[in-house]
Computed example of a mutant assay.
Amino acid sequence: SEIGISFGAIGSAVGTTNQLQLDETKLRNALANNPNAVYDLFAATSGATLTTSGDIVAVSGKPTAAPSSGRYVIISDGAGNLTAEFRDESNNVLWTNTGTITAGGTNSTLIPGLVITAASTLTGAQSEIQVTYREGVLQRLDRYLDSTLGAEGVVSTRGDGFQQRLRQIDLQMERFEARLEDRRAQLIRQFSALERLLAEMQQQGAQLGMQLASLMGSGQ
């Protein structure tokens, strides 16, 4: 809220701070007094510290190509040829670049955003630069939206779950309808057999009646 952007006053009741609020006066003052702080709040920021001095003895600037916290390892052959590797916190190499430097000179292209200074004498010693990376509001929002609305996000996953459940229900309905059709066919067969049996019994009854009538007629 120091820069005029918030979801409401601290202590607001739950459910009443679901809209982003902008205080234009505070935001203008923050931009006028400390624009870098406002930028750092929204954008991803990273810092670099030389932790191992070898052929590189000083570093300045902010690394712009580091995708996360980790370290740059600068390998020197002692003749001015450099290879820079960015390694994440699991020591996986994510990025490499090559360049040159002279004794006591500087290089601003080997590592984007950083200016490195060489020792007065190059010996081939390896150097390391520790990088700290912090996500800004925009990066966090982007990551949240991706985790929610992306292909592997909550909405997509739940949608896939609903679709799978619907397919299961459809399959269960198909199986139920098949069983129902089998039962209907079975009842039809039983009813047809019952009708045939009834017809046979009626025919036998008629024949028996005729025989009884014949016997009674012959006895008179």
Rank of each mutant, 00 (worst) to 15 (best):
L82Y: 08
L110M: 05
N81L: 10
L82R: 11
S76V: 09
V115H: 02
V93T: 15
N97D: 15
P67D: 02
N97T: 13
Q130R: 15
S76W: 05
G61H: 07
Q130G: 05
V73I: 13
I75W: 00
D77S: 11
V131L: 00
G99C: 09
T98K: 14
N107P: 08
V131S: 00
V131E: 00
T100Y: 07
T64Y: 00
T123I: 02
S68V: 01
L82K: 11
E89G: 02
S76H: 04
L114H: 02
V73D: 04
T106Y: 12
D88L: 00
N107W: 14
S108A: 15
L110S: 07
G78P: 11
T132K: 06
S90A: 15
V137W: 11
S127Q: 04
G105S: 04
N91H: 08
T64R: 01
S69Q: 06
I129V: 15
S68L: 03
E128T: 13
T100M: 08
L82P: 08
T100N: 12
K62D: 04
L94F: 02
S76Q: 05
I111N: 02
A125E: 06
G99M: 12
E89V: 14
G104A: 14
T121P: 06
G61D: 10
T96A: 06
E135G: 03
S108I: 13
P67Q: 12
N92M: 10
S76G: 12
I129H: 04
A79F: 12
T117Q: 13
Q130W: 02
V93S: 09
N92S: 08
N81E: 05
T102K: 12
L114S: 04
E128W: 05
G99D: 12
G80A: 06
G104K: 09
P67G: 10
E135W: 01
N107Q: 12
I129A: 04
G80V: 03
A84N: 03
P112K: 07
G78S: 12
I75S: 11
E128V: 13
I101S: 12
G61L: 11
S90P: 01
Q130E: 10
A119Q: 03
L138M: 13
T98C: 07
T64I: 13
S90M: 14
W95H: 07
I74L: 08
L138D: 06
G124P: 01
G80I: 13
Q126L: 06
